[in-house]
Computed example of a mutant assay.
Amino acid sequence: MARNYVQPGETLPLIAPRALASGDGFLVGGIFAIALTAAAAGAPVEGRRVGVFDGPKATGAWTPGQKLYWDNTAFNLTTTATNNVLVGAAVQAQASADTVGRALLTGQIAP
């Protein structure tokens, strides 16, 4: 292994941008993650960047594999790309009225 290797990067120590409950999605700069514990705004929190999670869902139906974006104003997952950050893809179909959706977070860095 390279001597400059630090860690895998799937989970990172970050600073909570707002009060977070365990399981809340959040954005720190270009990094989207799911809080693994509760944290006060400005406090350290471990954030998981990749994996399959159930998260808050905006109105609108999802199809498996459909790109999902994080709405950092409404704090939910959406299929709307405009003004939102690509975070992954839908794992399963979701009805428009569903308030929770299953998403594969792919760990890409937001532009």
Rank of each mutant, 00 (worst) to 15 (best):
N4P: 02
K67N: 08
Q92E: 15
A19F: 05
G42N: 04
I31R: 09
A19Q: 04
G51Y: 05
Q7D: 07
Y5M: 02
K67H: 02
A33M: 01
M1Y: 05
V52S: 05
V50I: 15
P44W: 06
N76M: 10
G23K: 08
L104W: 11
F32M: 06
T11M: 14
F26M: 09
K67G: 06
R18K: 12
L20C: 08
T78K: 00
L36R: 14
A21E: 15
M1P: 07
L20Y: 09
S22A: 15
F26I: 00
R48W: 03
G107H: 10
P8R: 15
P17H: 03
A81S: 14
L68H: 01
G107P: 11
V100S: 06
L104Q: 13
A38Y: 11
Q92V: 13
A90I: 14
R102N: 03
Q94Y: 02
V85E: 06
V85T: 13
M1Q: 07
L105P: 07
V100K: 08
A41I: 09
M1K: 09
A2E: 10
I109N: 07
L77G: 11
G101H: 02
G42I: 07
F26V: 07
A39N: 09
V87I: 15
Q66Y: 01
F75Y: 15
F26P: 03
G60A: 08
T82M: 00
P64T: 03
A16I: 08
A90V: 07
L36G: 12
G60L: 04
V52N: 11
S96T: 12
V45L: 09
P64S: 03
G9R: 06
F32L: 00
P56I: 05
A35E: 07
A89M: 12
L36D: 14
G51T: 02
G9W: 08
A97G: 08
I109D: 08
V91T: 03
N72C: 04
A38N: 12
T37P: 02
R49V: 03
D54H: 10
G107C: 03
Q94I: 00
P64R: 00
L20H: 12
D54K: 05
D98I: 00
D24R: 00
V50Y: 01
G42A: 01
A16K: 06
G29W: 04
L36N: 12
